[in-house]
Design a protein around this nucleic acid. Structure first.
Lengths: 144, 144
DNA sequence: ATAAATTAGGATAAACATATCCGAATTGAA
DNA sequence: TTCAATTCGGATATGTTTATCCTAATTTAT
């Protein structure tokens, strides 16, 4: 479904948000441990998220990553996915046709269209905040 | 969503089925033209489908690939997907957790579970035959 | 100032997916 | 029997994703 990079990106962002909810910054090492991801690879992904304005980084000693509560309420999973993987997952034809549409559908079009729309809706209505809350309350998990 | 190989596999199978509906075998060259795919790569994929028993091949002059009408009514998209990509797409956690479940969910679990189930249902209820018919009737397309 | 802890970013490696090439095996027809 | 058309299968090449390594830049605290 998503690339590894995108999976790490979402998990990392949710962890950062969860820490930010209690006014703590998350360092790269923290994040990498919390989500069980390769540290240097995770660093690259965090850079992309920072450049895209989804999270904020602070350099130097006692630095780290954070996201304000208001930001995490505005930002949606879709934005993370689009930065890392693009929007192909809910825009492109399931069978790889370039111009597949209801006017010129692939043989699977009618069946896939509603699934893609549902996925799009989920990604575009689920905020980082909503995921961070469940994590903070111990209802959800980020590794294993 | 699917790998390129899997996209080609589904399109190739539907083309073969469509040809088989009018008792014509499809050669590798035919298929590759009909679905606009790289020929040698397509050959590898067809081999996998033959080994998995989804299509039948006939060697030698006037050889090619086919699938009987009764077979194409039984075989589902899911079987093609499982042979090429495995069933990860509708069984694995969207965020990449190894043991994500309703007992120990990732932060996206509840939202993804219904989408994955819908996808599973579509793949496990759509027969090759149903797709081949639409194609034969000129209602659907396999390239562009 | 200096040292320590941190993010940023370039270079490289390893693994996997995609794609090509070529010869072998098979079959039907001339 | 030979030839042509075809699938089969091994070897190789190319491209992309995933991952690591190392150094630079930044910031805080001593």
């Amino acid at each position: 479904m998503f690339s590894k990079a995108c999976e790490y990106a979402i998990r990392a962002t949710v962890h950062i948000a969860r820490q930010s909810l209690q006014d703590e910054r998350a360092s790269l090492v923290d994040i990498s441990k919390a989500i069980d991801s390769p540290i240097a690879f995770t660093a690259k992904i965090l850079q992309q998220l920072v450049q895209a304005g989804i999270i904020t980084s602070i350099r130097g000693k006692a630095g780290g990553f954070y996201i304000s509560t208001s930001e995490m309420k505005e930002k949606l999973i879709a934005e993370i996915v689009e930065v890392i993987d693009g929007d192909d997952i809910y825009t492109e034809c399931g069978l790889g046709l370039k111009s597949c549409s209801s006017e010129r559908p692939c043989p699977a079009h009618e069946r896939f269209v509603s699934i893609r729309n549902d996925l799009k809706t989920v990604l575009k209505t689920t905020s980082i905040y909503s995921m961070a809350v469940g994590l903070k309350e111990g209802l959800t998990f980020l590794k294993r």
